[in-house]
Design a protein around this nucleic acid. Structure first.
Lengths: 214, 214
DNA sequence: ATTCTTGTTATACGAGCGTGTAATTCGAGG
DNA sequence: CCTCGAATTACACGCTCGTATAACAAGAAT
């Protein structure tokens, strides 16, 4: 037998990582139907058979990819809290702005996220992944709200967090799907004003953009 | 040849209608990949070939289905305005509640909507459909806000509409994807409070549920 | 050097996809 | 009642899908 394709052995972690990244790239670019086993393997630089060596089925890979996506989105939002100001209002304001700005808010990210929504509804494992990450995000937000110099009941705190999460998600969605419908900085400004109105504080004045970046 | 399937001739409008409804049903139930030409034809009670007689391609049918879906969602929200109270605040309150309640807010509807998001990003025709319907909804909301007894600038009115639309969309999304995470009536109540806070009015008191229904 | 494990490639299979094209049969107009 | 256009069915084609399985080779162990 002539020329068989040469290859290098890699760690399981590395291979799973590459396959997941390839799958997410393809879904982002061409939707769910573009992420076929052959295309994923090709982009990851391996042959299709290898996918079934690391994932029991394509569905298994899909779940892993969704898990990774949600992790990335939550951590991108949380990143802004590290090294930021200490003031509670400023921290909340920065978090709100980051959540409706790039890279969290991004046409590709929304398309990617939407591709999995149907499965979240129908697949229990997918729903668990979603629930955990949704609550993680909301609790992060609730923690920031709780740190504000106000005194409200626990029930009120929960309602405030849901409401603020709602307006952030809604603006994230609209700004990402239809970016050309809004002027530059319009969505972040509206997000600050709205969250401020819901919590009855002046978030616009509290916003402290990161001056360590150009 | 023996037994060929009997059939009745129907109007073009009726056939297109049935095929679109069948496609939407299938996407809602099993995602985009479940809406194959064969499955659509089967559900519509015809044979696959007929689809290409009324639509130039499957993509053409997909666009028509998305158009129909968006129409339905907007008109479901608008329906609450007909025959409702005359008071501007009450009209807005009812509209807000309807937008985050069944049938507008519904797990199936969200799954259906999400299935098309990727195409909206990549297909110009799909994006046009989306833009038109998004703006129609937002303008309807803006009209309700403009009718309130307040005096604000046009720019402020636009910002208010975007913000209210954002919180409505966000709550619609979260309540529909994860209904079990909220208690009964929690989402509508939060929607009223939030929109009221953004507009600085008491929407909760203004809400007048339709008493003609049981 | 040689062996052995197993990560990796190669290849095949059946099912289902969207799409063309020809054969039928419905039902309206004469 | 007959005719005839066209709505509808029937069928085949080429392709791609996810999966199964066998052959191979890389690299650590000896």
């Amino acid at each position: 037998m002539a020329d068989r394709r040469p290859y290098r052995r890699e760690s399981e972690e590395r291979r799973r990582e590459d396959l997941i990244a390839a799958a997410l790239d393809l879904v982002a670019q061409g939707g769910l139907h573009a992420a076929t086993v052959r295309a994923i393997a090709d982009r990851a630089g391996v042959t299709p058979g290898l996918i079934r060596h690391y994932f029991t089925s394509k569905e298994d890979l899909t779940r892993a990819a969704y898990h990774r996506l949600m992790e990335r989105m939550t951590s991108d939002s949380a990143a802004v809290l590290l090294g930021g100001p200490d003031d509670a209002m400023a921290r909340l304001a920065n978090f709100v702005v980051a959540s409706v700005s790039s890279p969290v808010a991004d046409p590709v990210a929304v398309g990617l996220w939407a591709a999995f929504v149907h499965d979240v509804r129908c697949d229990a494992a997918m729903r668990d992944i979603h629930t955990a990450n949704y609550l993680a995000f909301r609790n992060m937000l609730q923690g920031l709200i709780a740190a504000l110099p106000r005194s409200v009941s626990d029930a009120q705190l929960r309602s405030d967090a849901i409401a603020c999460n709602g307006v952030i998600d809604g603006l994230w969605l609209e700004g990402s799907i239809l970016p050309e419908a809004f002027s530059l900085g319009e969505i972040p400004a509206i997000a600050l004003t709205s969250v401020g109105a819901i919590l009855n504080i002046d978030l616009v004045a509290a916003y402290q953009p990161d001056r360590t970046l150009p």
